[in-house]
C-alpha cells in the first residue's frame, strides 16, 4: 500500500476524524520524483479534546511510528478539535519552502 494510503487508513481508524487531509508534499523537496517522504496532515477529531498540543502530536507519531522509522522524513501536523477548527475558520497553514537540508545531509 502506498505510504499516503497507509497514513490515511491508520488515522481514519484510530481517530474517526470529521476532517482529514493527507497531502504528499515530497515534490516540494530535493528528493526523486514520486517520493513519499514529506507529508502534511490536517486532522479534526473529537479524539483531541482535552489533550495538549504536544500530546496530540505524540499520539500521531505513535500511530505512524512504522512510517516515520521508514520512508517518512517530514510530517507536518495540524490537529484540531471540531470546535478549534471552527474557530480558526477551517484555515490550513501552508508548509514552508524547502531550503535543501536533505542535500546538505547527504
Amino acid at each position: 500500500m502506498p505510504v499516503q494510503a497507509q497514513i490515511e487508513s491508520t488515522l481514519n481508524e484510530a481517530l474517526a476524524p470529521t476532517f482529514l487531509d493527507v497531502a504528499n508534499e515530497s515534490h516540494m523537496h530535493s528528493v526523486p520524483p514520486n517520493s513519499e517522504t514529506h507529508f502534511r496532515v490536517v486532522a479534526v477529531s473529537d479524539a483531541f479534546a482535552g489533550q495538549r498540543k504536544v500530546a496530540r502530536h505524540q499520539r500521531i507519531y505513535g500511530l505512524l511510528a512504522e512510517q516515520l522509522a521508514g520512508p517518512v522524513h517530514a510530517l507536518a501536523l495540524q490537529l484540531y478539535t471540531p470546535e478549534e477548527w471552527r474557530e480558526r475558520e477551517e484555515q490550513v497553514r501552508p508548509s514552508p519552502d524547502c531550503l535543501g537540508g536533505s542535500k546538505a545531509e547527504s
Binding site: A74, A76, S95, P96, D97, C98, L99, G101, A104, E105
Partner: peptide, 9 residues
Amino acid sequence: QPQCGFSAR
C-alpha cells in the same frame, strides 16, 4: 543559515 524550511520558520 537554517538548512530546512521547518527550522527556518
